[in-house]
């Protein structure tokens, strides 16, 4: 269970998050929607521990463990996975090598045995098959020369392999065609389990047709201004964020 209480944060001295309260119980998928500049990406970076995102107050715990005091890699080992809005290219680093290094780092963090190359390949192939992705994905450099859709798929592949307890998807749907969108959604849905929760950050309702959330929160100007069921997303799609702002 992710529990955020009174979280405030700033970037370059400018307050962005102004008191977030949010609970995502284990086994649930919540969506966070909001207009550009409302603090959606900041929330995801604060939770993942990116440098330059300064927490000024409040708390965030995952299954009772304080996230905010940990290094990014410790949070990853604690089960936090961030699917990036803009996945980063690592020239010359093979995707398979990267995935195995990441998986073993996290397994180490959890006190599990590391996988050798063969064990890893077996797992990776299984995930690729589930996600209907080609094995070429493993042979290429990390995100180098990938199309926008391929980069997002690669994020989902990593998520499937690393099996986090909390996945944060930061506008993973941006720039995806409908087929890619389905693959991403299938990837998330496949992970749904009583010990898995997800925070799906999106600008559009479209993704939520495929990943049906348990709850939808509307983030505006650094605060959650409205919470509802999946129907809230549809309502936003129809009448826009202005209506929420007026109501709030």
């Amino acid at each position: 269970m992710l529990r955020i209480e009174g979280l405030t944060a700033e970037v370059d001295g400018k307050p962005i998050l102004k008191g977030i309260d949010l609970e995502v119980p284990a086994g649930e998928v919540h969506a966070i929607m909001g207009p550009n500049g409302s603090g959606k990406s900041t929330l995801s970076y604060v939770l993942a521990g990116r440098e330059g995102y300064e927490v000024t107050g409040g708390s965030a715990t995952l299954d009772g463990v304080d996230l905010l005091g940990m290094e990014p890699e410790e949070r990853a080992a604690a089960g936090v996975f961030l699917a990036f809005q803009y996945p980063v290219e690592l020239p010359g680093v093979g995707n398979a090598n990267f995935l195995r290094t990441a998986l073993n780092a996290i397994r180490r963090g959890k006190g599990e045995a590391e996988l050798d190359a063969m064990q890893f390949l077996k797992q990776a192939r299984a995930r690729l098959k589930e996600l209907q992705m080609s094995e070429d994905m493993l042979k290429r450099g990390v995100n180098v020369g990938f199309s926008g859709g391929e980069k997002k798929r690669n994020e989902v592949l990593q998520m499937a392999l690393l099996r986090p307890s909390l996945a944060i998807l930061d506008e993973t749907d941006s720039g995806l065609d409908i087929d890619a969108l389905k693959i991403v959604a299938d990837g998330v849905n496949a992970l749904r389990a009583p010990d898995f929760s997800a925070l799906v950050i999106t600008h559009y309702q479209r993704l939520l047709d495929y990943i049906v959330p348990d709850k939808v929160h509307v983030l505006m100007q650094g605060r959650i201004v409205q919470t509802g069921g999946p129907e809230l997303a549809k309502q936003l799609e129809a009448s826009g964020y202005a209506s929420v702002q007026a109501a709030a």
Binding site: E51, A76, V80, L90, G92, V93, F98, T101, A105, I106
Partner: peptide, 26 residues
């Protein structure tokens, strides 16, 4: 952003640098 990406995936900062440098020298 390269370092953060690697660390988010569980790599320590030093492992991340090693990985990126080895990629650079591949």
């Amino acid at each position: 952003d390269q370092l953060f990406y690697c660390r988010q995936r569980g790599l320590s900062e030093e492992d991340a640098v090693g990985l990126i440098v080895n990629g650079f020298c591949r």
